[in-house]
Amino acid sequence: MSRREMLSGGLRGLGLLGIGGATGALATRERRDDEVWQIDPDACIQCGLCATECVLEVSAVKTVHSHGMCGYCELCTGYFEPDPVALDEGAENQLCPTAAIERTYIEHPYYEYRILPDLCVGCGKCVKGCNMFGNGSLYLQVNHDRCVDCNRCAIAGACPAGAFRLVPRATPYRLRGEEET
């Protein structure tokens, strides 16, 4: 084999290697750089897998609260256990197992409910209570200052409702009303 033949064969091989590599990467594309994972709150069924499937030790999925939608109910079904002993902040009355919801008196009989993201594990129990009896002002979202942006989100793969969606990085949340975490 002449030097020219060896060179041309090698170049051809390198070219094909590059094309093959690119094809392989494209064939398995899950998330573009300008996309992030997010939960569609209308599709979420609060199954609890967000809390256990995230690669992080504590899930990047957190409850968020639309204060604009909230009824500020005295008996908040996202905050209180079903049939609580009393409508107060006693631990036995609180629905959240990690005490991640703070209740603040506004004026009789209205209360504000605020999520403490450091305590929220994304189990969706409060969301279930709010959706079942209230208007859905509590819902789950991937918190993007915690999410490590996996190409293949482990929760998305496990989500039985297909509620995980790729959304533009520029608008990374699927919000209801005016949100605060």
């Binding site: 390198l14 094909l16 093959g20 494209l26 499937e53 189990c123 996996c150």
Partner: peptide, 30 residues
């Protein structure tokens, strides 16, 4: 070339599968 291309494709797949995907720690059910 074909062989190398195939290897490249596999490499691309492997790179995609691992890039930015930390291994999930097995968590107990809730």
């Amino acid at each position: 070339g074909g062989g190398l291309g195939g290897l490249g494709a596999l490499g691309g797949i492997a790179a995609r599968k691992t890039a930015g995907d930390p291994p999930a720690a097995r968590k107990p059910p809730l």
